[in-house]
């Protein structure tokens, strides 16, 4: 079994149709000609260039690449935290930006999880999780109920009234996922969400994330630099190459779901890992 892999680069017309979602109306996220230049004191940095990508409804896409290849930049562009210096982003067929202003309707579809849990220390776990609802004017009783439901979903039931610092790192990250899911967004964006966790917690979190994704039916874009994590979670892996960051290859992961931890020792899984590893090593 060989990974389905294709050159995405440089000309978009070489891109085989099945690698990007062909029925354009099914695209949840559409990136067209996205490029990012950072201005620094002495010179400009071209962090990301020529990104053309459609991400399908309900798809689990993983962005993989060596550090500094623009993964965070791309995710922040999709999240509306950064306006790309050129190109367009559409969320559910709505442009994310109208000139310099963010489109509130498009933003409402997004939930973001960062590498750090970023819990607000002055709010209980419950209040942290329900903050997005509070900002939308949802009444308190309803927020409580939803927070309790979410705590159960991510496995931190009973910790609703605790302060964030009373929880372990893994539990705080679960709370961060719950917060991102509180508004039932169509899209969940995650930047190395488990990067700061130990290997065992990480495996457990990957399983949970798969379950949450299958239950909620949302679209997930997850950034990682762990090949194993990428293969385990993804429907498709977009490999980015560095200097400047650009799309290298797209790999379809055809492993049945739900996947369990043991799938990692199967031949098929390891073939994917090996071929991605070789491709990554070729960048160095």
């Amino acid at each position: 079994m060989t990974p389905a892999k294709a050159e995405m680069n440089p000309a978009p017309e070489h891109q085989p149709a099945d690698l990007s979602v062909s029925a354009a109306k099914d695209a949840m996220i559409r990136l067209t000609g996205v490029e990012q230049r950072y201005k620094t004191k002495d010179h400009d940095v071209l962090a990301l260039t020529d990104v053309n990508l459609n991400i399908g409804k309900g798809e689990f896409l993983v962005l993989l690449g060596p550090s500094g290849c623009g993964k965070t930049t791309l995710l922040r562009i999709i999240a509306g935290l950064l306006q790309s210096t050129s190109g367009t982003v559409e969320i559910d067929n709505k442009p994310l930006w109208n000139k310099k202003a963010r489109n509130d309707d498009a933003m409402d579809e997004l939930g973001v999880v960062f590498q750090e849990a970023n819990m607000f220390p002055w709010m209980t776990i419950e209040d942290n999780i329900a903050l997005p609802l509070k900002l939308r004017g949802v009444p308190k009783a309803e927020r409580r109920a939803r927070a309790a439901e979410l705590c159960k979903m991510v496995g931190i039931e009973g910790f609703e009234k605790r302060w964030p610092r009373q929880l372990s790192g893994g539990m705080r990250q679960r709370a961060a996922i719950a917060r991102a899911l509180s508004t039932k967004p169509q899209i969940l964006l995650m930047d190395e969400p488990f990067g700061a966790l130990d290997a065992m917690t990480r495996d457990a979190m990957n399983l949970e994330l798969q379950r949450i994704w299958m239950e909620s039916g949302c679209t997930i874009v997850l950034v990682t630099h762990s090949i194993r994590e990428a293969v385990f979670l993804a429907d498709r892996i977009l490999l980015l190459s560095p200097r400047p960051g650009r799309m290298d290859t797209i790999t379809d992961i055809e492993i049945e779901r739900p996947r369990d931890t043991y799938v990692q020792s199967t031949q098929g899984f390891q073939d994917y890992e090996l071929s991605l590893r070789q491709r990554l090593d070729s960048f160095a």
Partner: peptide, 19 residues
């Protein structure tokens, strides 16, 4: 990181101030 959370939640200036 906290600013990013409020930005991602599309919070208003007043909400960011208060919360």
């Amino acid at each position: 990181g906290h600013r990013d959370v409020m930005l991602a939640l599309n919070a208003s200036r007043w909400q960011t101030f208060k919360e």
